[in-house]
Amino acid sequence: MRKYSLTIAIASLFIFFVQAQTKKPAVQPKKPTGTIVQTAMIHGKALYLQYCVTCHQADGGGVPNLNPPLIKTPYVLGDKKRLIKILLQGLNEDIEIDGEIYSNAMPAFSMKDQEIADVLTYVRNSFGNKGPAVTAAEVKSVRATLK
């Protein structure tokens, strides 16, 4: 009987240590992975074609003196918060990019956080751009500051 109890005790300790070693770490916030970025690019392209292509053109080149290009500009590749604010609030002031003034007003868009993140991720990674993805959490954070 004593031998049997010792065997059970050892087995219980073994199970305890195995479970302790295989415990999952606390959930970390999601960082954009390849698959998430690929999905954002697909959704973002569809949104770009729906909302942006008329003014910024299929190649992201914009329209001279009216709608700015989205190709390697500080507005696109610079501060994400500024870019997010432009989509959330619109832009109704002249802006200068590479010595050229653009004066057409851009409306605010009432899209969901994920939609804004997707279209901005698409723009920041298309037309020769190589920028970090925009996340829905970043959009939500900026949106919260505007209320």
Score class of each variant (00 low, 15 high):
21 Q>R: 12
21 Q>I: 15
33 T>L: 07
83 L>N: 07
114 Q>H: 10
90 G>R: 03
109 F>Y: 05
103 S>Y: 08
134 V>C: 02
2 R>L: 15
113 D>K: 02
41 M>Q: 12
11 A>F: 14
60 G>A: 07
5 S>P: 09
19 Q>P: 14
10 I>Q: 08
6 L>W: 11
79 D>H: 06
94 D>V: 11
129 N>Q: 03
53 V>S: 09
27 V>S: 11
127 F>A: 02
75 Y>A: 06
113 D>P: 04
88 L>W: 03
84 I>L: 09
64 P>Q: 12
118 D>K: 01
124 R>A: 03
51 Y>M: 07
132 P>F: 04
140 K>C: 04
62 G>H: 03
5 S>K: 13
131 G>N: 01
58 A>S: 15
1 M>K: 10
15 I>K: 11
111 M>E: 02
46 A>I: 07
60 G>T: 08
145 T>Y: 04
74 P>N: 11
24 K>R: 12
30 K>S: 13
108 A>I: 13
78 G>P: 08
34 G>F: 08
73 T>K: 03
123 V>L: 05
61 G>N: 10
18 V>M: 12
38 Q>G: 09
17 F>R: 11
44 G>D: 01
118 D>P: 01
112 K>L: 06
52 C>R: 00
63 V>M: 10
68 P>S: 03
57 Q>G: 11
32 P>K: 02
76 V>Y: 01
95 I>Y: 01
95 I>T: 04
130 K>Y: 13
92 N>A: 10
94 D>R: 07
24 K>P: 08
115 E>T: 02
30 K>N: 10
145 T>R: 08
18 V>Y: 09
20 A>S: 15
66 L>K: 14
105 A>L: 09
70 L>H: 00
139 V>D: 00
42 I>A: 11
13 L>M: 14
45 K>V: 13
93 E>H: 09
32 P>L: 06
121 T>S: 07
80 K>V: 05
93 E>C: 06
47 L>P: 01
4 Y>W: 11
49 L>D: 13
101 I>T: 14
96 E>R: 07
144 A>G: 09
25 P>F: 00
107 P>A: 05
23 K>F: 05
30 K>D: 08
122 Y>E: 02
81 K>Y: 01
95 I>D: 01
85 K>H: 09
21 Q>L: 14
